[in-house]
Amino acid sequence: MTEEVLLHGCLHNDPLAQKELYQRYSHKMLSVCYRFAHNREDAEDMLQEGFIKVFSQIHTFRFQGAFEGWIRRIMVHTCINHLKRNKKFNESVDIIHASGVQTREESIPSIVQAKQVIECIRMLPIGYRTVLNLYALEGYSHKEIAAVLDIEESTSRSQYTRARQMLEEILIRKKILQKPHDKVSLLAAFGR
């Protein structure tokens, strides 16, 4: 089924088209949700809530830009709203731990698979993880992050800096990052 036929079917509440759309995009979108979630159950809840929004708002898609990107934006906003609603974004952040990390150029060996890095990102406190995901992986600016999360832009910047530092420490501790001279930009590894 072509994307156009799929969209037309979903606009007319065709259950087969809706099922196809879900099957086509749910795996990728679960990965997006998983990066924000505390656990798999939360990620699955976010995914279901996100797809309800996709189906109820599909009439707003204007065929400008990629449909997958449109779905992804809905998923990201659903995740953020889920975290806010459950007050998980406001959980305390271990600043003492992060402040002890020396500032270094963000890096990972080029041989590291994205899955390993994502698992390390999930070890970050929720505030750090959310800002890192939005900035480094979703491409939001600090100004956009501040608006979405209802925080100051400077808070977004400091959370991102601390997240990078803590992530590097985790990567070193897990022996994923081993050789300082074998560095590759973390942002480049995620396409940003």
Rank of each mutant, 00 (worst) to 15 (best):
L47G: 01
S185D: 15
I145K: 00
F36Y: 11
L83S: 00
A17L: 07
V184R: 14
E3R: 11
L187W: 13
R85C: 03
P109M: 13
E91G: 01
A98T: 06
R73D: 13
A98F: 08
L124W: 04
N133K: 01
P125F: 03
T155A: 10
R104K: 15
E49T: 09
T130H: 02
A43H: 02
G50M: 08
H97M: 08
P109R: 08
E44T: 07
K143N: 11
E106Y: 12
V76I: 15
E49K: 08
I95T: 04
D42A: 09
W70E: 03
K87T: 00
Q57P: 01
R192P: 01
R129L: 04
K87N: 11
F190M: 03
T60R: 15
I172S: 13
L30M: 10
M166K: 05
I176R: 03
C120M: 14
S156H: 03
Q159K: 05
K84E: 05
I176G: 09
H38M: 06
R40L: 12
T155W: 08
S154G: 04
R129G: 01
E68I: 09
G50D: 02
E3S: 13
V184L: 14
L171F: 11
K143M: 13
I80M: 03
N81E: 10
M166Q: 07
S154R: 07
T78D: 04
S154P: 00
D45T: 03
L186K: 05
Y140M: 09
I170Q: 03
M46V: 06
L21Q: 01
E3N: 12
F61N: 05
L124N: 03
G100W: 12
D42R: 02
H38G: 08
H181K: 14
F55P: 02
L6Y: 06
E119V: 11
C10R: 04
P109F: 07
V93Y: 01
F55W: 09
F55Q: 03
L21P: 04
A163C: 04
L47H: 02
L21W: 07
Q113P: 08
E20I: 14
T60F: 11
N133E: 01
G100I: 05
Q102A: 13
G65C: 07
D45E: 12
K174P: 08
G100M: 12
A98P: 04
A37C: 05
H181D: 15
V184S: 14
M123Q: 15
I80F: 06
F67I: 06
R129M: 04
S156F: 00
F190W: 10
L11S: 09
V112F: 08
K179S: 13
L21D: 03
D182A: 13
V5L: 14
E153K: 05
Q64V: 15
Q165V: 01
I118W: 07
M75E: 02
Y34D: 03
I118G: 00
I121Q: 02
M46S: 04
Y34R: 07
A98V: 06
V101S: 12
I170E: 05
M1F: 14
R173Q: 15
E106S: 11
D42M: 10
A37M: 02
K175C: 11
G9L: 11
I151H: 02
M1K: 14
L7K: 09
R73S: 12
D45N: 10
I111N: 15
L171E: 07
S158W: 07
R157W: 10
V131Y: 02
M46D: 00
A188P: 04
L187T: 13
N86A: 05
H142E: 05
R85S: 06
C33H: 05
H38L: 12
E138P: 07
F55L: 11
Q18E: 13
D94G: 01
